[in-house]
Structures are given as C-alpha cells and as structure tokens.
Design a protein around this nucleic acid. Structure first.
Length: 505
RNA sequence: CGGAGCGUAGCUCAGCUUGGCUAGAGCGCUGCGUUCGGGACGCAGAGGUCGUAGGUUCAAAUCCUAUCGCUCCGACCA
C-alpha cells in the first residue's frame, strides 16, 4: 500500500514557496503552461474563478457609473509614440505585427508576406488607442465625463514569467475615463482604488494597504499612481490593483480637448485603472495551504460538493437523499448567487475523490453514506479546517446554517490573512534593523523572511542603492497614516512621510 | 541580452562517460477481479520515428557538428 504524503502538496510552503505555488496550481487544475512561451492555458476551474471576479467587479463598475466597450487588440505603432514616458515604459515589452499574410516558403513551410506599411503593436495597455477615440468623441464639456471600461487581453513580452503573476498574455480589465476638471478626475482615481480595495477585502478576503506609488514605481505617463498592496504567505508584497491619475499628459498627447462652458479650448483630465488575472495568483498565495487551494467562498465556483458513499443496493436511496439536500441548498442565496452544489458521483475511490476536492479548494464537502442517511444527517468537512476535522450535523441544521457557515469561512479567511500581515509588519527606525529584517539567514536558498517594513522615509539616491542591494522596494506611501513627524530610518532627516517597504513580486 | 541546465512513453526520469541484446522504471491510462466511511491492491494490456538535420561507424538514444525549443538564475516588469 502506497503511503499517502503528509500533505497533499509537496513541497510545502515552508520548504519551497515558489514550487509550492506551481504545485497548487497544478493540483487544483487552475492552469498549465502552454506550448507558447510565457503564456498559460487557464483551465475551467481557474477560468470559473475569473468569471466570478469579472461578474462582481463588473457590477461594481456599473454601480459607479461606468459602461463597457471594446477597443482593438492592434494599435498603430505611431500611437504609442505620442506620449514620451509611456513609450519608454512599454516599448521594450511590445509584441509587433509586421505582416498580414503567410505564403509557402522554399522549405515547404510558411513565411510572412505582405509587409505592413506601419507596424501594429499588440496592446500592452490601451491608453493610446482609447485616447485616440476619446479625442474624436469629446468636443464639448457636455460630452464629459466619459466613463468606460473594457475587459480584454493584453500582451507584455516579459523576460521571466510566472503563472498568474506575470505571463506574456494576460486577461484584465482596464477602465479609462476623461473628465472636465482635475478634481473630478482625481476623485475618479480614488473612487476606483476604493472599489478595488473593497473587492479585495470583502470578496477575496484579502486585506490590502492602499497608498500612492513613488515616482519610480509610477505608471509610465501618469501624474500619480495609486495601488492596493497585499501580503502573500511568503511575506512578499503583491500589487493587486492600480489606479492612475493621468493629469492632462495623455489628453495633450492625444488632443483630447473640448470647448468649455466659457467657450475656451481646454484639455480633458484622464484616468485609467486595472486589475488582472494576477488577482487569482494573489488569492492562491493569500489563502492556500499545504493541502492545496483554499478559496474565499464568495468567489468559489462551487460552494458545496456532495460525495455519495454507497454499495450497489443503497445507490439509489443515497443519490436521492443527496439530490434532496442539493436542491434545498440551491434555493438559497449566498453572495448574490445561489449556492452552487455538485454531486460527485464519479466511479472513483472515496478517499481519492475527497482529496481532489480538497486540493481544488471547494469550501464545503459533504460525505453522505447510509449511516448519515439513517440519522437524517450530513458529515461535513470545511476547507478552512483540517482535512480530518469533520463533523456530523442534522440535515435540517446543515441546510439552515449553510449560508452562515460560508459567511463564517469568508470571515475566517480574512481574519487569518489580516493577522498574518500584522504579525509580519514591523515599524523600523534605523538602517541596521532594516537591513537585518530583509536579510535571509540562508543566502543561497533564502527562507521565508522579512515582511512589510513601515518606516519614515525621505527620498535619497543612496537609499535607492541600499534598497536595490537588499532587493527591497517601496511598495507605497500608505494613506491613513499618523502625520506626526519622525526621522527617516536611512537619512535621519525629519519627515512626516511614512512608506511601506517590502520584497515584492 | 548575460550565466547554468535540460530535450528518451501522457507525466517524472534512468540508460549516454566506455557505441552492440527486442530502449527501461515509477506514476498515469485501458480491461478484469478483490476493494470502497480517508490518498487501494493483484493480474493482464496499450503507449516511443530517443527534439530536428547532417556526419563518423559494420552498428548511434549513446560520439562529432549544426540547429530548434524549453526550464532555472540574473537585468526588466501588473
């Protein structure tokens, strides 16, 4: 008899965090590498998560006055050239289309033919093409604001890729808005950041820190970039969403101008904001454990899986009993959806089946056999508890409590993640402590170390070098900080500016 | 683009140094049987132009040359 591993995922988080992450994705059947370098195939279980993310965010966008539209995948190269900083930021990672036809090649294969007059780039983001359209749509102050979102794929030709966190092609949502006044555009930027924070915390059960990016980390061409930053279980930071105040930079480059109510030709103020399939990576690394994926119930594709256990003679009765429970659950609402129930009647050994669902992160498992049926009960396992911590509940109690159990799990996940972040956030006042905090004991194979460092900070060229050596970045200048002044941990200068430092993805 | 490594069954890999049986194992897959309330076991089976193209040789997965691809580590990034 083969020994079952102690944990469903090997290696464990402690042993090798990056490898654990890959193995969770594999075991949960979220995605796999594709034949195309740097690209991944998102499998049904992973895509269902994305669909749930989309559904919730889409509603939030619409509630804040936005509408969806779709702009082309291909952008004329000259469009990108219009905004200098933007070019600099994205040029290196653009895929370029230079031909529009294939013809037989001498070696029997195919070769590109029909060279394009002007190369097209595959959008790395759509500010330029959308700006071009905005400039056509905006003539009067009465045409503003324009509040648009698009769900799309984008391509950034990255050197190094990691599933869900950084792939050459990824799915995302990009909001683009144009406003008559600076104040309104700034407010939009803040509103959308809050939408992201709300989504992260209340739907993904992932606590985030909201703040502003420093100049070096800003979106190319933006006046200000705001972000939500989350802590993963290896204590590294992950930027989970960004919102940019673009000022009039893009409006000037793309001539988005209008006649004001004073009859003056005026440039609009624009914003853009986005989240991507990276959120799935964030979700995995925030909640999952050494037995696989753990999903926040509000976003789980399935809430409950029922595993019937029967012999041939009891099959029909058990399945009927399971169906009754499933039907009762499906009538209930949880997080704006009916409870999603699957009865897994596949011809597989029970244990094997149970573990598959554990690895996929289904919140509630019900094992139902003759003993349970006799007692009019269910035998329940919860994904936020150990795989062996299971309990018997009467059928009616379970059905009555299902929604509150899911809610409780959602809260537990959030609390657990929040505590983890707080336990691994340290206020630092001097250089030596800072350095020690971010230096692993084992240089060759760094163990999980560090965390978030909260420190007073004054920009300084030497600080940048110092941080670079430690591979630490300034994640953000957080909002909601006390404003009493202190001393910069590095320069010793007095300031009231606090920053969050961390190693990051 | 720099550094390292790897291409042999669906997956993970052994075999290569020292060329030579019919190219192997584990997992997975198919069938049958025993099992089934915690990751099963037995038996039988399917599955490979050894990345590709040249070369050396009586003989190449193995040696040589070229080429393609991928993974990992750096510089860059949501």
């Amino acid at each position: 008899m083969a020994k079952a591993p102690k944990t469903a995922i090997e290696p464990t988080r402690e042993q090798d965090y990056p490898e654990w992450f890959q193995q969770v994705i594999k075991a949960a059947e979220l995605a796999e590498l594709s034949p195309v370098r740097g690209c991944m195939v998102i499998k049904p279980w992973g895509y269902a998560l994305w669909e749930n993310i989309q559904q919730v965010l889409d509603r939030m966008f619409k509630e804040t006055g936005h509408v969806n539209a779709y702009f082309p995948l291909f952008i004329p190269m000259s469009y990108l050239e219009k905004e200098a900083e933007h070019v600099e930021g994205f040029a290196k990672e653009c895929a370029v289309v230079t031909h529009h036809r294939l013809e037989p090649s001498p070696d029997g294969g195919l070769q590109p033919a029909g060279k394009l007059e002007e190369p097209l780039i595959v959008r790395p983001t759509s500010e330029t093409i959308i700006g071009e359209m905005f400039s056509r749509w905006v003539q009067s102050y009465r045409d503003l604001p324009i509040l648009i979102n698009q769900w799309a794929n984008v391509v950034r030709w990255e050197m190094r890729t990691r599933m869900f966190l950084r792939t050459a092609e990824f799915l995302w949502q990009e909001g683009h808005t144009a406003h008559a006044t600076e104040a309104e555009a700034r407010e939009e930027t803040e509103t959308m950041l809050k939408v992201y924070a709300d989504f992260a915390e209340n739907w993904m059960a992932m606590p985030v820190i909201q703040g502003e990016k420093t100049e070096g980390e800003r979106f190319p061409g933006a006046v200000a970039t705001y972000c939500i930053e989350a802590m993963m279980q290896d204590r590294k930071a992950l930027q989970a969403g960004t919102s940019h105040f673009l000022g009039q930079n893009f409006a000037k480059a793309q001539k988005i101008q209008y006649l004001s109510d004073q009859g003056e030709e005026t440039y609009a103020w624009t914003t853009s904001w986005g989240v991507s399939t990276r959120l799935i990576g964030a979700m995995i690394m925030t909640h999952s454990d050494d037995d696989g994926l753990v999903l926040p119930p509000k976003l789980a594709p399935k809430h409950v899986v029922i595993l019937p256990i029967y012999k041939d003679d009891s099959r029909e009765a058990i399945l009927n009993y399971c169906n009754e429970i499933a039907e009762a659950l499906r009538k209930q609402l949880f997080a704006n959806r009916t409870i999603e129930v699957e009865i897994d009647d596949r011809d597989l050994r029970g244990g094997e089946k149970v573990w598959q669902h554990i690895k996929k992160g289904v919140p509630i498992r019900l094992e139902i056999g003759p003993r349970d049926m006799e007692k009019d009960a269910v035998f329940m396992g919860r994904r936020d508890k150990g795989p062996k911590e299971k309990q018997t509940l009467s059928r009616s109690d379970f059905i009555d409590q299902a929604v509150s159990i899911l809610e409780e799990m959602q809260d537990n996940l959030y609390q657990r993640a929040l505590e983890f972040r707080e336990d691994n956030t340290k206020t630092i006042e001097d250089k030596e402590t800072f350095k020690a905090y971010f230096t692993p004991k084992n240089k060759k194979k760094p163990e999980i170390h560090g965390g978030f460092a909260r420190a007073y900070y004054v920009d300084d060229p030497e600080l940048e070098t110092f941080l670079k050596e430690l591979k630490v970045t300034i994640r953000c200048l957080p909002f909601e900080e006390e404003t009493k002044p202190g001393r910069c941990f590095f320069t010793g200068k007095e300031t009231s500016q606090v920053a969050i430092f961390a190693k990051a993805y």
